[in-house]
Design a protein around this nucleic acid. Structure first.
Lengths: 209, 209
DNA sequence: AGTCATAATTAAACAGCGTTCAATAAAATA
DNA sequence: TATTTTATTGAACGCTGTTTAATTATGACT
């Protein structure tokens, strides 16, 4: 039955990644399996292992597409030099950025959470091409942070990472119900408090704008 | 071979939880299985399913012990009214609290990360007794936060959650290499920046102490 | 066109997983 | 002692990731 030229290697890879992402979107990461992906694209699991290294490799490529999707989701709102709403002040702009991330996580919960449910073995470092996709997201954050805290590269780097990891922590623990929240607390209100005060602390020696 | 009175139900539960935690500590959550736990305590998997509801139930009870362990780890350093070092100022006290959490995560990486690698189905809420263990941790944070931001209950609640989720986010993304860090950035330096500035923002209308 | 090497694809196998269940053996009750 | 109750087991089911020998289609070479 071998149909060697039905699809090229890269076509199969692309089909598998697309089908795998659909699968995760529908049934979550825990319901994901290589066999289901293979069936979905009309091949068997052996073909998948001919094209991908292993299970981790498949998930990594699927998650990479999610990272791309997240980046374009955020660029759609914040891509221009001004951003979503140039009339708003710095705090509001950053809050909107956080809200955007939270929106994406909610609207694409299964794909977003697969980003973090999947972990390589601690000694296996993330491949460079994957790290670069994360870096691209941070570049967006840093661009938005620059008007607030100035052009210092090292400070931009660090601030973007502190802020974003914090926003992510709030988002992750909130959406997985691990923060024992009451009604009034939402990820948006918590990130608002974070940004309001963290940025105030950062700019405390500057005059209010 | 049934040995009905070798151990009581609760004894088996305790043995399974202890053995399961050892197992996770040694091989990580991904290497954990009910069969291995059963073998470790000299029973078969069927007995485990007689005593626990299902796989989630077992892991939840193991993670609960980890939460207890984490709480006592932090109480050992911060249990008293004063805390680790009463001579230090507020910022340093909170930084020490964050560093304590990071220490625990590093020293008990597999058990700590099982806390977050395991997730119930999104519609299944965490059991109350589990939420209460998380709540006990927040009570500790709130007690440490009270001298810094005052006694307002709602503000304490919210601030503790913002701060802790943020610290956790930094810790989690750092230890899983998802922050594309360079050498100078450590979870400690990132949480320092977070606390320094977030608390400065919170207390910006109060005189410096 | 016919042969041959190459590479794609498959089916089957392996060991392990969570989960269930009938059969068994031991304890508790009568 | 006879009977009921219950703890425990082993085997089964369908699933998983992964590997491998066998098959088959293709491209190249004569």
């Amino acid at each position: 039955m071998a149909r060697r030229s039905d699809h090229t290697r890269v076509e199969i890879k692309a089909m598998a990644v697309a089908a795998g992402r659909d699968l995760i979107r529908d049934v979550g990461y825990s319901g994901f399996s290589a066999r289901k992906v293979a069936t979905a694209i009309g091949y068997t699991v052996g073909t998948l292992y001919n094209v991908f290294e292993n299970h981790d490799d498949i998930v990594l490529h699927i998650n990479a597409v999610t990272l791309d999707d997240l980046l374009s989701f955020m660029e759609k709102r914040f891509g221009g030099s001004g951003g979503a709403d140039v009339t708003q002040n710095d705090h509001q702009a950053l809050k909107a950025l956080a809200a955007c991330y939270i929106d994406y996580a909610r609207e694409n919960y299964n794909c977003w959470s697969a980003l973090f449910e999947h972990n390589l073995a601690p000694d296996m470092p993330l491949p460079d091409w994957y790290g670069e996709k994360i870096g691209a997201l941070f570049t967006l954050i840093e661009a938005r942070l620059k008007p607030v805290i100035g052009p210092d590269e090292a400070e931009l780097r660090q601030t973007a990472r502190v802020l974003w990891a914090s926003i992510h922590g709030i988002c992750a623990l909130t959406l997985t119900n691990k923060l024992t929240l009451v009604g009034v607390e939402t990820p948006e209100s918590l990130t608002s408090s974070l940004i309001e005060n963290y940025i105030a602390g950062l700019t405390r020696r500057l005059p209010d704008t």
